[in-house]
Design a protein around this nucleic acid. Structure first.
Length: 224
DNA sequence: GCGACAG
DNA sequence: ATCTTGTCGC
């Protein structure tokens, strides 16, 4: 794997990312969430995709894809490692979500092509990046109150929002993935909150990927 | 050279 | 990301 070639590819693809709203819907019927994990000591990449009805935010579909891991984790190149599995899971979906929340950054990336942007471009779907940690950029101190927010700045441009989604919890890093404006991205995340630190699409994707009790309960009353 | 560094 | 028990606090 040639990091320099990948870097060039990022620069090229970043120029194709759409940072304004280009969502063909008044109100989406389905919003999806994506999360990627690893098994077998990292040899297997596991991608979980969930589809929630909007605005009820009820889980209506979930898919998990497992493929051989293609690349090691290198900060700044996460999308090349996770996209293949995400694509496999995406092709298994029976629903057609109008919006997708991806676990990780969107344009708040050194070359403006985080996994949310890269994948959004790949499947041409509006995406939003929801990350739990900063990758690049600077932020002013964030107030302790729930709801406080600060722009994430890098090279004199705003690349995202740092938002305290819940009291006493670390903030979320929200950014444009593809076809969703930066302010809209934060608004959509806000609309998908149900009292937890993470928005429902991301939270469910994580629950499915890790087979959490909440997901096991859902399965029990929807399959048996 | 040193520190930072999504998942 | 993953390996892992208890523990402090609302």
């Amino acid at each position: 794997m040639d990091i320099n070639a990948l870097r060039e590819e990022q620069i090229d693809k970043a120029s194709q990312v759409v940072r304004h709203d280009d969502m063909p819907f008044e109100q989406p019927a389905f919003i999806a969430g994506a999360d990627v994990g690893f098994e077998q000591g990292g040899d297997v990449t596991r991608a979980a995709l969930v589809v929630l009805a909007y605005p009820s935010l009820e889980l209506v579909e979930y898919r998990v894809a497992r493929i051989p891991t293609v690349m090691p984790y290198i900060p700044g190149f996460l999308s090349f490692r996770e996209s293949p599995a995400l694509l496999a899971a995406w092709e298994m979906l029976s629903h057609r979500p109008e919006l997708l929340f991806v676990d990780g950054h969107g344009v708040s990336h050194p070359r403006r092509l985080g996994v949310a942007s890269h994948f959004g471009l790949l499947v041409n779907v509006p995406t939003i990046g929801v990350a739990k940690k900063r990758l690049c950029g600077q932020v002013a101190p964030l107030a302790a109150e729930v709801g406080s927010q600060q722009p994430l700045m890098d090279r004199s441009e705003q690349i995202g929002w740092v938002w305290r989604s819940k009291a006493r919890c670390n903030p979320l890093f929200v950014s444009t993935g593809h076809r969703v404006a930066i302010d809209s991205a934060l608004l959509w995340v806000m609309r998908c909150m149900r009292g937890y630190r993470l928005p429902e699409p991301t939270r469910w994707a994580d629950a499915v990927a890790s087979n959490r009790p909440a997901f096991q309960r859902w399965q029990r009353q929807h399959r048996l």
